[in-house]
Each structure stands twice: as structure tokens, then as C-alpha cells.
Computed example of a mutant assay.
Amino acid sequence: MLWLAWVFAHAIPLVWIDRFDTSTGDIKYYRSGALGTAEGAMTEYPVLGTLPARLVALFPGDEDAYVRWFMALCVLTSALFTGWLVHVERGRGLRAAWFWVGFVGLSGPIILSRLDLFPSVAVAVFAALLFARTPVARRAATVVLAVATMMKLWPGVLGAALVGGARRRSTWVRVFWFLGSLVVVAAVTGMVAGVDVLLSPLDYQSDRGLQIESLVATPVMVAASFAAVGDLRWSISYAASKSFEITGPGAATMTTVATVATVVTVLVALSWAVCRLVRDDWSPEQALAFSLTLVALLIATNKVFSPQYITWLAPLTAVALVFCRRRIVTVLAVEVLATALLTTFVYPVYYDWMLTVPPSPVAVGVLALRNLGVLLVAGTAGWWALTAVRAGSSRQ
């Protein structure tokens, strides 16, 4: 029954993409970068993160064939992840697999048409290995996190979740292996592809403006939706960042808010690490709960929120369903599924309705609900992390 549902769930984005010829622009862009037919293509991605796209470029065929090969690789990755969930632990593993199938079905075309699936699954592997009982497996977890960081950058902040008591050797082993692996992978990447490719993704992100889908852009989008036709105070246009950005009253202020909020998120990560050093109460559940919190906060505070970012949350949530028995994890899973569905309505269903001034109030309303869902996920994950700390303290 599960695998029948799995086939149906994956057929939804495949048929959607084929029937409406949508959401393939990024895949075609990956091809141009992998083949070098467009100058500067994919320089905003860490080189390691583009390997799936470069692998698919080795397969025969034209652009349409490349799109099919890329989606096939995503389907294969999802199948392997689902199979692991089913077999890792009976009962709870099956529940997690059903969650993943539901997420794929609800998240629309983006799950099979973006590179984000691959680092997100890698982060889930990292989290799962933390629950292993052997030191070798936990060291492997830190290596996987380092590789995921070099694939998409954002997983690097999850290194804060590795920190435990200052007097415990295991703490410094985890931190050393993570940082050491990060240095090694970066050095190898630099030697093979050049030092410039290590820095270009950072420069690219810093130069981006306020994307219309981000949480901090929501007040500006709401204000623009009430503007009269022909009102030139706001402008929505396709920027050099390859995304739609909004400018006008409030945009600069909200961009500053996003920058400050992102800094605060980093400070939260550092504060968590310091508390674990002092309190000596690290546990895999704490690490997983805080990792989910950080991912949700990174999405919520970013001035950019592409629809595929919702994929960052799902594999980690599936791992939580496998290894954690708390009811709050089930609540979190439901919130992620609801947010995934709302994201599908944001993109691609109502996306074109948001690209004019004034943007459609209906589309902006759906966007606001989706962004509220992300905040709800962050709050629930944060509460879980705090209760996991209290539970750990009561057992000491």
C-alpha cells in the first residue's frame, strides 16, 4: 500500500510538469551550467552541490532528455530515502515513510525539479547517524554534515548542534571531525575547481535583493496589493539573482530587518552551543530538534525564500518521526505538510498573480498564510528543543 501511494505521489509532480510544461526552467538552467553553454551559470551554487546536475549531463539526449534524466535522479533519490525509512525501524519508520510520501504529493513540481533535494537528504542522513550507538557512526555524521555544507552552505550552521559538554571528549571529537572534514572537502574542491568557486556563492547571496516570497517581504507585498493600478511606488521585476524581487516603500527597511534577523539566528546557534558546553546535557534528540529549529529560522529570516526551501524541512522531520516518540513531532510533521501544500499554491499555482503591481490580494493572502506556517514550524521546533533540554536535565 505504501509503495502504491509512493508511485501516485511522485506521479503528481511528473504529470503536472508534463501537462502544464512548468517548473523546468531551473533544470534547463542546470544543464547550461553543467555544459558550460551559458557564462556564469550555476556559479551561485557550491560546486559540490552541482554534482547531480553535472552527472545528469553525462547522459545522452537533448534538453528535454536532460529534464527527464534529472527528474529520474530525483525520483531515485526519493525511492532510496523512502526505502531506508521503511526498513530503519519498524512501525515508526513506516510512519515516517508515509509522511515523506505525503510531502512529495503535496509539494508539487518543486520536489523533482530542484537541486535542494540532495543536500536536504544528506542532512537527514547526518541527523540519523547521530542516533547510532557507535562512535564511528557519529563521526560519520559529522563528515556527512560537512559534505552537505559544501553542497548548499546552510547546513554549516547545524554544526552548533554537535556541541556538548566542555569536559567530554566526545564533544571535541564531533567538532574536530566536522571542522576537519569541512577543511578537507573545501581544500579538495579548491584544488579541483579553483578557489573562486568557493567564494562566488557567498558573494552572490550578499548581492541579492528582497525576494517577493520571503517572510520579510510579506508586509511590503501586502502594502503593494492595496496599491492602485498604475501605482509606480512599488516595482516587481526579475533581477540578476534569477528571482523576482520587490522594490519600493518599505523594501529597504525589510531587507535590513532580514539581515539583522539572520545575524540573530546565528547568535542563537552560538548561544545554544555555549549553553551545551556549560550544561553538559547534549543528546541526539536535542541536536535534531535544534537542527530543525535552525533550518526553519534560516528560512524565516532570509531575504530570499524560493519555493524549494521548504524541502529543507521534510527529510529532517521524517528522521524525527523515526527516532523520537514525542507527540510534538507529530504536530510538527502536520505543520510541515500544511506548509508544503500552501507553498504549492504560492508556486506555481498563484505565482503569476504576484508578479504585477498591484499583486493579487488572493495570491498575497496565500503567501502570508504559507509564511505564517513557516513561523509556526519554527516555533514548534523551538519548543521541542527546549522541552528536550528539560527532559535531558531531569534525567541527569
Score class of each variant (00 low, 15 high):
Trp84Asp: 08
Thr134Leu: 10
Phe81Trp: 12
Ala146Pro: 04
Gly108Asp: 01
Leu129Glu: 03
Arg114Thr: 01
Trp177Ser: 07
Ala187His: 07
Phe118Pro: 00
Leu145Cys: 11
Pro155His: 04
Leu115Gly: 00
Arg168Val: 05
Leu198His: 07
Leu106Glu: 05
Ala146Asp: 03
Ala137Arg: 15
Leu85Val: 09
Ala122Val: 08
Val101Trp: 02
Arg169Ser: 12
Ala132Ser: 15
Thr189Pro: 03
Ala140His: 09
Gly83Ser: 12
Leu106Arg: 04
Asp196Asn: 10
Leu153Arg: 11
Arg92Ile: 10
Val123Gln: 01
Val157Glu: 07
Val184Tyr: 06
Val195Ile: 14
Arg114Leu: 02
Leu115Gln: 01
Val195Lys: 12
Ser107Gly: 06
Gly83Thr: 10
Arg133Tyr: 08
Leu94Met: 13
Trp98Glu: 04
His87Phe: 13
Ala148Pro: 07
Arg95Trp: 14
Ala132Arg: 15
Ser113Asp: 02
Leu106Gln: 06
Ala187Tyr: 08
Ala127Ser: 14
Ala193Trp: 10
Ala193Asn: 07
Leu162Lys: 02
Arg169Lys: 15
Arg167Glu: 12
Leu158Val: 11
Ala127Gln: 10
Pro135Val: 08
Val88His: 12
Arg174Met: 11
Val185Asp: 03
Ser181Tyr: 03
Gly165Tyr: 01
Arg133Phe: 07
Ala122Arg: 01
Val188Ile: 15
Phe118Val: 00
Val125Phe: 11
Asp196Trp: 08
Lys152Val: 09
Gly108Ile: 02
Gly83His: 12
Trp98Gly: 04
Val86Tyr: 05
Val101Asp: 01
Thr171Gln: 06
Pro135Arg: 12
Val173Gln: 14
Val86Trp: 09
Arg95Asn: 13
Leu182Thr: 12
Phe118Ser: 00
Arg138Trp: 06
Gly159Glu: 01
Gly93Pro: 09
Leu106Ser: 02
His87Arg: 15
Ala146Tyr: 05
Phe178Gly: 01
Trp172Asp: 06
Thr189Gln: 13
Ala137Met: 13
Ser120Thr: 05
Leu145Lys: 09
Val195Asp: 13
Leu130Cys: 09
Arg90Leu: 12
Arg95Pro: 08
Val175Asp: 02
Gly156Arg: 05
Thr134Gly: 12
Trp100Phe: 13
Ala160Val: 08
Leu129Ala: 13
Gly190Asp: 06
Val123Trp: 00
Ser170Pro: 00
Val175Trp: 03
Val86Gly: 04
Val121Arg: 00
Ala96Ile: 10
Leu94Thr: 15
Val144Lys: 05
Val104Arg: 00
Val125Cys: 11
Leu85Gly: 04
Thr82Gln: 12
Gly91Gln: 12
Val192Leu: 14
Gly164Tyr: 00
Asp116Asn: 08
Thr82Ile: 13
Trp98Thr: 05
Gly105Lys: 02
Gly165Glu: 00
Phe118Ala: 00
Gly190Thr: 08
Trp98Arg: 11
Val121His: 00
Gly91Asn: 11
Arg114Gly: 01
Ala137Phe: 10
Gly159Asp: 02
Leu106Asp: 03
Val125Leu: 14
Lys152Cys: 04
Val121Met: 02
Leu162Asn: 02
Trp84Met: 10
Val121Ala: 01
